[in-house]
Design a protein around this nucleic acid. Structure first.
Lengths: 227, 227
DNA sequence: ATTTAAATTCATCGCTTGTTGAATTGTCAA
DNA sequence: TTGACAATTCAACAAGCGATGAATTTAAAT
């Protein structure tokens, strides 16, 4: 007779689905959808549906949409930065008292991304695509990239300046920019290279991408900055 | 008394604003807005307003929104491809009977973009940003890039294969991919490098970007494909 | 002169958007 | 046991969305 209500209003019993972690479910779904469709391509209702959550809960946890976007972008930026920094430091200590080689700096910059993408956590693959979106956007790039990644840039530019003493700063920044672009597209995982190469190369073959990318970028730096 | 009607219904006198070219005005405004905000970030009303045109006229000329997007993307793709091809051919003839050098191939690929961006036609700068958006999008990239640029890729990969006979195809495609990413971000003109470098480098300094990019990319190709 | 077609505006359709206030249910400390 | 607070659903809001049929004006063809 009376139709069984499938969703119950009000605070759920904490034992119902222990560690449901709705907040994180929202962030994960948002990460995936924003990466795929961009900021404006995702509606809060689609997101709520993907996260298995009522639409009002998004605002309850994260405020308005823009703030949610910033939160999603920030979350893994901090982790990634930390891993890059420790990778750089340990490479510098390994090389001491000599100055570190360019290849090692590039490696400290790229390997954390590769490790993240190959991890079990699917969220990292989504985050890399989001990073490509933000990095290439004239609206979000100057805001979010500067806000969350500029400190890291300074550290790596410093390291490169020591490794390439003949370079002037403009050379270093431009080359860093090329690296950033190559990295973004490569790890954005769009499936483009699969089609382009007729299936010979695969977007999700991170090992192949990485093996070639380090020497590619390092040689570029040397050519421009070590003349 | 009677309020002056500022817009008149019906077909306008052809002498009214000769060569008004409303169709092209729509395409140009769409190019700019799509490049800045992406597909979903642009509403047809915003676009109509920017183009100084009634919203219904967009559908009349270009059909539904998706079809408009494709038309915008296609327009300059054909021009760009043609210029890249002739640049490659004339470089090959200049080198004959020797095989062309890697640097010359990269140059044939990049210089048309630089010339376009430095031209008076502001639309080219917008188009480059649009190209970066599409290239990095997992939704549009595999569709539009493949549709409008894959033939060109084949030609350039062929040329690179001749210039780097020791390389296997996977190497070539991956390096091409790095080049594509570096180019996209660099010419996307997001203003990121301006902030990153504290004003030392400027996004719109295409000459500076280009002067360093050719040797950077060429050295990368040689390192990976000429071992 | 008449008819047909092209180019434009207007008004409106049904749906979706982000956001929010109110109601509901559960937890936990006093 | 009561009262404050946390977590959730529901219903609704004004605004905006893409699309389109009808009306209108002009140009071109006959």
């Amino acid at each position: 007779m009376c139709p069984r209500k499938t969703t119950k209003v009000g605070r759920p019993r904490s034992s119902d689905n222990e560690k449901s972690e709705r907040g994180e479910r929202i962030l994960n779904a948002a990460e995936e959808l924003f990466a795929l469709h961009g900021y404006d391509g995702v509606t809060l209702r689609t997101l709520a549906n993907a996260a298995g959550v009522d639409v009002a809960l998004i605002n309850y946890y994260f405020g308005p949409k823009q703030q949610l976007f910033d939160t999603v972008f920030k979350r893994r930026a901090e982790i990634l930065n930390q891993e890059r920094l420790t990778a750089l430091e340990s490479a510098q200590q390994a090389a001491a008292p000599d100055v570190i080689a360019v290849e090692k700096i590039i490696e400290a910059f790229l390997r954390p991304l590769e490790v993240a993408q190959e991890s079990d956590d699917e969220g990292w693959r989504n985050y890399c695509a989001l990073l490509a979106y933000v990095n290439n956007s004239a609206v979000w790039g100057p805001v979010l990239m500067s806000k969350h990644y500029n400190d890291l840039v300074d550290v790596f530019i410093d390291a490169l300046r020591q490794a390439l003493p003949k370079a002037d700063d403009a050379d270093l920044y431009w080359c860093y920019h090329y690296m950033s672009g190559a990295m973004s597209l490569t790890f954005a995982n769009t499936g483009r290279i699969d089609k382009m190469s007729g299936g010979l190369c695969r977007s999700d073959d991170f090992q192949a991408a990485y093996d070639r990318m380090i020497p590619f970028i390092a040689a570029g730096f040397r050519q421009v900055c070590d003349r």
